[in-house]
Design a protein around this nucleic acid. Sequence first.
DNA 1: AATATAAGGTGTCGAAATTACACCATTAAA
DNA 2: TTTAATGGTGTAATTTCGACACCTTATATT
Lengths: 231, 231
Amino acid sequence: MEVKLPTFDSVFSIDCVIFGFDAGELKILLIERNEEPFKDWLALPGYIVEQDESIDDAAERILYELTGLRDLHMQQFHTFGEVKRHPQGRVITVAYYALIRINGQKEVKPVTQYAKSAFWHPVNDLPKLAFDHSEIFNTGFNKIRRRLNYQPIAFELLPEKFTLTQLQSLYEAVLNKKLDKRNFRKKMLSYGFLKELDEKQKGVSYRAAKLYKFDRRKYAKIFQNELNLVQ
Amino acid sequence: MEVKLPTFDSVFSIDCVIFGFDAGELKILLIERNEEPFKDWLALPGYIVEQDESIDDAAERILYELTGLRDLHMQQFHTFGEVKRHPQGRVITVAYYALIRINGQKEVKPVTQYAKSAFWHPVNDLPKLAFDHSEIFNTGFNKIRRRLNYQPIAFELLPEKFTLTQLQSLYEAVLNKKLDKRNFRKKMLSYGFLKELDEKQKGVSYRAAKLYKFDRRKYAKIFQNELNLVQ
DNA sequence: AATATAAGGTGTCGAAATTACACCATTAAA
DNA sequence: TTTAATGGTGTAATTTCGACACCTTATATT
């Protein structure tokens, strides 16, 4: 039996592709929908922009409502405006991405009834998503892959203190290729925006690695004219 | 006396930043508005997206109606969604750019009454534009400056057959800096996507230069993984 | 015919960046 | 004490980058 849905004329909406990095794996945030159409499907967090809020504000609000996450640095990357994207009417969607540290403890949980749940899912082997969200995800993933080379986005995904191996495995996850350890370290250190700490990794069952911090001020100075960080 | 304008709830619109290159100078296409608000002001060509057309289709249609130009390869670059952008109501605008050859003969002329005229204007010394169009232009100019390094956009601005000096002066106009002639030629030729023709420039009062063509197929092969074309 | 003008076209060398490549050191657990 | 796992390091060959100057050719001018 087919459910008859109401229709509407035309709305703006926001969809969010939120990347996290955890246990050497790149993940994105998905929700389980609780409303028709695509009820029970997995989808990107997204909803409708209000009359009196900018799209940037809307992106923050919507992400919060659907996942409980706040104060991310979200950036728009593409607008999807095909006519038949949404079964109920005309929807033009501005897609945003953000990068975030997943600390084991950080729980994600919808604040509204619109989503049943929210959770992290590895970017490899994503299931089919609602609407054209698979396409939106792909577009976003390609964007950050490219931006990795000229913006310090890697550091938003890592904890404040990180090891060079963690940094490298993040690059490898995003670029989807192996990098040479010695060359990677040489290059990263040569930029001068990594601050070596007097601290070591803890709780590992092998030789502990030195911890580093990302020095935002040095970065800003050096990269006024953007460069490629990795080949 | 203040004119009272009608208001509306919310619309999508398109604005176009169309770059052309002529006589060694980079230009964009402006219209003179024929309607309130901002009647008689200069503005980017732009208008409202219809219910039943995709934003890409709308961009093509709107550009045609306001300038008579057709079949450009337009690409979206940013969406502007501040609340107070438009005095009459909420407007979210997807901005597109395109690059085009200005052949002396190619006239631009509005097809609708919405614009009084359309014309090319050098990107240096642009006047203040209607709405937030100055900001839109700046954002677009920065985008193509960056894309110049990894997309063959230069070739869309040049005539089909061009000299290396023309190519270089286009790069110089977009990047806004002088480049070394020998290094530039060495690098461009080394990529292998320029086809040397058996023809020379005509009608110049000095030694005629060889003409080249851009070889799209070779380009596509070489640049599957994008590179920087110029430092 | 001679000259002036304007742009076309070309090569080298040093510096810097990139790449390929392998082994010993350290720590914790078994 | 041994094993397992990762940390951490240097060099040499190659490639790319950037700086740099002069002769050639075509047309216009006298």
